[in-house]
Structure formats: structure tokens, C-alpha cells
């Protein structure tokens, strides 16, 4: 992973400090399996620099950006770079204190405390990924205030109060203006360093496609990238919703072609059908047909 950072052009001094961080806080034996081995790499030296510096300085991160900006990929990449075990918590409307910190349960004939992911993460000094943090109600997140600010504690009523292990960091992600999301209140936002995730640029997307599928032919990667850009532009012009702007779907579609579907079939289920509105689907279909020959198969797009 560190070699990858060098390739991306991250400052050598920063990398040295990451190495120092890693040797100072080795992950416990039992938590090793939680250190992610990312399937995707995040490209973008500038963002890397911001995030690494913030984490080295002991700050928590909030990654804000629209769909397909690689928020979760980046969070996972960060855990891997720092060699920390990762806890993923997906936030939803009814996320509450007990689902974050922990709750009472019954064990061996007595009531005991069952640790929630935040608690476990804090003990082990892991990286906690708070996914879609603005899906939850602000009130239920208030329990995290003391955890996220300078106090760095978790106080469970009726049980003990613990201090966060020094390597603990929290990385929240949010998609502003997504259906069902709400405004993050200031109290919570002030406990994070906020990074605006840029949309993935054409060349980076092409790099990503080729890294993922090394035998993919370059001209095909170029066309798929151009297709994705066109869909994005359509979303930005509010002609269609962002449903079809699906990077995961695009990557998966390439894989489907590799496994035997035709381009058309693969893009149908990977991209086009993500729009459930029939008319919108027609518009996306047009963009696809104007770019990609649907009859292409594995032999056409992959080098032997």
C-alpha cells in the first residue's frame, strides 16, 4: 500500500510518519483479520495528503461527496495504509445509542453488556467507518459527541467509562442531498475534519478500470470512461436521477462480460436497469447505445 502512495506522489515525509505510526501502534493479533486488503485503490494525491495529515494529527474525518466519488473505497484504503483494524457501521434512520455503543444482554444467567461496534473499535484502537452518517437522526448521534471530540471517551451508563485507545479514529461518510438524508448538525460536524471528495476524473477512472481488469483493451476502457462521464453530465443537468450513475455497476458489468455476457446484457443489468423509471431508462439506454456496441463480447474487449 505504501508503494502505491509513492506512485501516487504522496510526500515521502508523510509516508515516513505513517510508518512510524504503524510501528508505534501494531494491531493486536486477534484484530489482524479486520485490517482490510482493498480491492480498489483510491487515486488522488491531494486527497491522500489531506487525509493522512489529519489522521496523523489525531483528527476524525468526514468524507462528503456525491455518488461514485469513492468515499467508502477511500475509507477502506486509509485503514489499510495505517494498518488499523476496521469497524464498519452503516447508519440508518433508527440508528440509536444501543446499536452504536452497546446494549444489555443476557449471558450465563446474568445481564451483561454487549459491546457495540464503536465500543469495540475504541478498545482496539481501530478505524471506525461511519457510513452515511447523515441518515441517522441527529439526536441519536449525540452519544458520540464525547467520543469524537477532545475527550475521547465512551461513558456507558451503568457500566464503566473507557478512554479511546490512542490509535482510534473515526471516518464518517455522507452524501449530501441524497434521498432520506438530513442536515448534519453543527455540533457533530465540528468534530470532524471535512474533506470534499471530488468526482472521479476521466483519466483516474480509466486507470481504475485497467487496474481492475488488466487485460481490458485500452480503447474499450476509454469508451466506458466516456460513457460514465456522459451519464454523469446528464445527472448534473438534472435530466436523469443519479441511479444510473453507478461505478460499482460499471465495474461489475465489465466482469460480467468477462464471464460470458454480451456488452449489452451486462450494461443492462449493471447500469441501465438501475433506473426504475421507464422513461429514464430509455434515456440511459440512448447514452449507452450512442457509445457502446452492444454485441461486443469477451473476445472483443479483452486482450487474449
Amino acid at each position: 500500500m505504501l508503494d502505491f502512495l509513492r506512485q501516487e506522489g504522496v510526500d515521502e515525509a508523510l509516508i515516513a510518519r505513517i510508518e512510524e505510526f504503524r510501528s508505534r501502534y501494531p494491531a493486536a493479533e486477534g484484530d489482524r483479520s479486520r485490517i482490510p486488503a482493498p480491492k480498489f485503490r483510491y487515486y488522488g494525491a491531494e486527497i491522500w495528503k489531506l487525509a493522512i495529515t489529519a489522521i496523523l494529527s489525531g483528527e476524525n474525518l468526514l468524507l462528503v461527496g456525491p455518488k461514485a466519488t469513492g468515499k467508502n473505497v477511500f475509507a477502506e484504503n486509509l485503514s489499510a495504509v495505517f494498518g488499523r483494524p476496521e469497524w464498519d457501521v452503516s447508519f440508518y434512520l433508527n440508528t440509536d445509542a444501543s446499536s452504536l455503543i452497546g446494549t444489555d444482554t443476557f449471558k450465563n444467567g446474568e445481564v451483561s453488556f454487549r459491546k457495540g461496534p464503536i465500543y469495540a473499535c475504541a478498545e482496539a484502537g481501530g478505524f471506525g467507518v461511519l457510513d452515511e452518517i447523515n441518515m441517522a437522526k441527529n439526536e441519536s448521534l449525540a452519544v458520540l459527541h464525547a467520543t469524537l471530540d477532545f475527550r475521547r471517551i465512551i461513558d456507558v451508563p451503568g457500566y464503566s467509562r473507557i478512554d479511546l485507545a490512542p490509535a482510534t479514529r473515526f471516518i464518517a461518510t455522507m452524501n449530501y442531498g441524497y434521498a432520506g438524508t438530513r442536515e448534519l448538525n453543527e455540533a457533530l460536524a465540528s468534530r470532524f475534519m471535512v474533506i470534499n471528495m471530488p468526482v472521479i476524473a476521466g483519466p483516474d477512472l480509466e486507470k481504475l478500470l485497467l487496474q481492475q481488469y488488466p487485460t481490458l483493451r485500452a480503447d474499450c476502457a476509454g469508451q466506458l470512461t466516456a460513457l460514465f462521464e456522459e451519464i454523469r453530465r446528464k445527472c448534473e443537468s438534472a435530466e436523469i436521477s443519479t441511479k444510473a450513475l453507478d461505478l460499482r455497476g460499471l465495474l461489475a458489468a465489465v466482469n460480467l462480460v468477462y464471464n460470458g455476457l454480451s456488452m449489452r446484457e451486462a450494461l443492462n443489468i449493471g447500469i441501465i436497469n438501475k433506473s426504475f423509471d421507464e422513461f429514464e431508462r430509455t434515456l440511459v439506454e440512448d447514452v449507452v447505445s450512442a457509445r457502446i456496441d452492444g454485441r461486443l463480447t469477451r473476445e472483443d474487449i479483452f486482450a487474449p
Binding site: E230, R233, K234, S237, E239, F279, L283, D286, V287
Partner: peptide, 18 residues
Amino acid sequence: ELQKRRADNIIWTCAEDY
């Protein structure tokens, strides 16, 4: 109307301008 909108969209896509 839908087909008109569709035509618009194809044109915008290719013109790279909305």
C-alpha cells in the same frame, strides 16, 4: 413529448452541452 425529450437528450449528450 417523451420522444422529444429523448431526442433532446441524445443531442445534448453528443454536444456535451446542456
